[in-house]
Nucleic acid binder design. Sequence first.
DNA 1: CTTTGTGCAAATTCTTTGCACCAAA
DNA 2: TTTGGTGCAAAGAATTTGCACAAAG
Lengths: 138, 138
Amino acid sequence: MFTTLQSHEYLRKHSIKPSVQRTAVMDYLMNNRTHPTIDEIYLALSPSMPTLSKTTVYNTLDIFVEKGAVRALVIDEKNARYDVDISAHAHFICKGCGKVHDIFDLKPSLFQIPRDTPFKIDAVEISYMGFCEKCKGN
Amino acid sequence: MFTTLQSHEYLRKHSIKPSVQRTAVMDYLMNNRTHPTIDEIYLALSPSMPTLSKTTVYNTLDIFVEKGAVRALVIDEKNARYDVDISAHAHFICKGCGKVHDIFDLKPSLFQIPRDTPFKIDAVEISYMGFCEKCKGN
DNA sequence: CTTTGTGCAAATTCTTTGCACCAAA
DNA sequence: TTTGGTGCAAAGAATTTGCACAAAG
């Protein structure tokens, strides 16, 4: 369980001013490693923060990504999803239920950036698609 | 240059009934390996097919993907992009101009599916983000 | 005929924008 | 007070849906 104090600390480390809303969003991300969408974050927080607006959630995540505090995943065609774990790891998305899971334990070489391309590459995203345990039976 | 006859043939191979519209879209994809969006395809074809509707382009691409004739790329947060090359290769998206480029010549092992996951994985997508030659100067 | 495909318009969904108000330094 | 943050409502953009008509077998 991560505390508000730790979220606060983590935000400062990335030079993000820790407002109440930002701390709440970061708190949620640190404790819910489910690659949530904007809507999921908003729905989870709004009961305890009734004045929270979805615009603020959008703004907040934009800042987090810009400052390198979270990763924006491009794996779900429907919505943007966010991951507070910025270390090199891959993702799996279930075509049945849409949930996104982490895949750690892959060879580090997978995440190497190819040389001899004409591009200035600064990020890699490795995604697997298929069906999760629950959905593969159906 | 791929001909309409070849597109026609390729559609049959994937058991897709080759209507005029479908053949035109496949033709475009085979001759324009630029990972086009729905809108780009629509705008390119509508001058010569004034009655073409964007709904048809959506329907068409859905069928192509479902039948395995084209790959839907999840790399561009704004729009879906389509690739008629279904072989194992990676993509690079430029954060400046948004263009998507192919990266061939990567180790085949990169595209291997990890065992010892609880998932039934049936596709891999490897994406690199950064700036292309033109945009990296700015 | 009967099935399948096409295309218009409307509806939905996700995201962005403009602007007024609030809060912190 | 001045700057930056928040939140509402409206706008925008991509995609989906419902339905009528057209085309193919």
